[in-house]
């Protein structure tokens, strides 16, 4: 490897450099550099546009209490909706993926695979209207019930929204939206669990579920986490569906079911941007920068989780 870099050895250089390799290496490198440049450009734009909002006196920022007070409820809203979506979607997606790969008859499995992939092709506006017109009214009784029986949890403190256009409904809409990506990735990794280890488990007298626990889930774990993080990224950034469903804006509260929900960063930007001027725009972009950082942190966390037990991952 060192020989190819050392210009003092022209002979070995000639021997390894073939035009095909060079073109491929060059174009691969160019793509890599290109994506980094785009990212850096976006980050630079966000930062430079956000600076006025960061440095402005508190009373000039919309809301009148400074950038922190403006962004904090939005961050809370963004995280609440996305985490709720993740908590609902991940177990469901893993269940679907296991059913499709190891339980369903082959034809059913293929059909189910298509149907779930189709969910990913629906535009998010449609999800938004579905959430608004169908899911929200349908969930009103649940809101009432949750406020009555689970009211001791701050998430369900009530009073229950009468429209159902709450963070809870948003979480469920987002869950449906991220289901395809998580289940598609889980399906992929589960179906690649090595036959060698599945047979090892079966030969020890494992039932199908035990086989899945011994040889499939451990193998697929990091893939599922990766899929979940992709889903989380999508849920964090989802704009239209949230903007349509949520009737929010007031207050930073953990309450999922009342009508005073915090909004999310992305939907707040979409709703406010058309009318924003001057420092208002800078403030919105600053909130976008916060979302950028959150997403980056989520991805790094996912990577760390995936790598933590690389020894036992089965990759070696």
């Amino acid at each position: 490897m060192t020989a190819t870099k050392a210009p003092s050895e022209p002979r070995s250089q000639q021997a390894v450099r073939r035009p095909g390799d060079r073109i491929f290496a060059g174009s691969a490198k160019a793509s890599g550099v290109f994506i980094l440049l785009v990212l850096a450009g976006v980050a630079a734009f966000l930062v430079s546009e956000a600076v006025p909002a960061l440095t402005a006196p508190a009373e000039d920022v919309p809301g009148g209490e400074g950038l922190g007070a403006y962004v904090a409820p939005l961050v809370l809203g963004t995280l609440l909706g996305a985490v709720l979506a993740l908590l609902v979607a991940t177990p469901l997606a893993v269940g679907i993926a296991l059913y499709v790969t190891y339980y369903a008859p082959r034809r059913v499995a293929a059909t189910m695979g298509y149907v779930i992939d189709l969910l990913a092709a629906i535009p998010s506006v449609v999800y938004g209207f579905w959430g608004l017109a169908v899911l929200a009214p349908a969930l009103v009784p649940f809101h009432v019930w949750a406020a009555d029986t689970l009211g001791f949890l701050s998430f369900f403190a009530g009073p229950a929204s009468t429209s159902g256009r709450t963070m809870f409904t948003v979480g469920l809409v987002l869950a449906v939206m991220i289901l395809p990506i998580i289940s598609a990735i889980s399906r992929e990794v589960f179906s690649q669990a090595p036959a060698l280890h599945r047979e090892a488990a079966l030969a020890l007298g494992a039932t199908r579920w035990e086989m899945i626990r011994m040889a499939v889930l451990p193998y697929g774990k990091s893939g599922v986490i990766g899929g979940a993080m992709l889903g989380l990224g999508r849920a964090l950034g989802e704009t239209m569906a949230v903007a349509i469903v949520l009737s929010g804006g007031a207050g930073a509260t953990l309450n999922l079911i009342s009508s005073s929900n915090p909004s999310t960063i992305a939907s707040n930007i979409a709703l406010r941007f058309p009318e924003a001027t001057g420092l208002g725009i800078n403030t919105l972009i600053a909130s976008g920068l916060v979302l950028f950082v959150i997403t980056l942190a989520v991805n790094m966390l996912a990577r760390w989780i995936v790598n933590r037990r690389a020894d036992f991952s089965g990759a070696n």
Binding site: L196, H197, E199, A200, A201, L202, A203, L204, G205, A206, T207, M214, A215, P218, Y219, K221, F312, S313, G314, A315, N316
Partner: peptide, 28 residues
């Protein structure tokens, strides 16, 4: 499942569970 619990098997290619320790492999 009960038949396989009574009749053990060793395969051509070694197949310890990669996600388990040596200890847990023996006890699988």
């Amino acid at each position: 499942v009960n038949v396989r619990r009574q009749i053990g098997m060793v395969f051509q290619r070694p197949n310890p569970f990669p996600t388990m320790s040596i200890y847990e492999n023996v006890l699988a």
